[in-house]
C-alpha cells in the first residue's frame, strides 16, 4: 500500500507553528513561564523542520513512499 505525504502542506503548517511560537516568545520578555515554554516549543519545531521541512526542499512537492519500504519507489 502506498502512503502519500504532502510534504509542502506539512511544511506550511510547521512554518505557521513556528511563527506562532515565536510570537508567544516575543510576548514573554517579562513572563518567564511564557517565554521559556515558547522556546521549548521552538526547539521541538526545529526537530519537525529537520525531519520534514529540510527534506521537503530536497524532494518534489509531493512524495510517495511505499509503506514497508521499497527505497526505489521514492525517486
Amino acid at each position: 500500500m502506498d502512503t502519500t505525504y504532502d510534504l509542502d502542506g506539512i511544511t506550511a503548517k510547521i512554518e505557521s507553528l513556528k511563527k506562532t511560537a515565536m510570537e508567544l516568545a516575543d510576548l514573554g520578555e517579562d513572563f518567564p513561564a511564557l517565554y521559556r515554554n515558547a522556546r521549548r516549543i521552538l526547539a521541538a519545531v526545529k526537530m519537525l523542520e529537520i525531519n520534514i521541512s529540510d527534506v521537503s526542499d530536497t524532494t518534489s512537492s509531493q512524495a510517495v513512499f511505499m509503506k514497508g519500504g521499497d527505497p526505489t519507489a521514492s525517486s
Binding site: Y5, L7, N51, V55, D57, T58, T59, K67, S74, S75
Partner: peptide, 16 residues
C-alpha cells in the same frame, strides 16, 4: 521513525 527521510533516494540524501 521517519518514513520520508529514511527511504529517501540516494541522490536526494546527498543533496540534502
Amino acid at each position: 521513525w521517519n518514513p520520508v527521510l529514511e527511504t529517501l533516494a540516494k541522490e536526494n540524501i546527498r543533496d540534502l
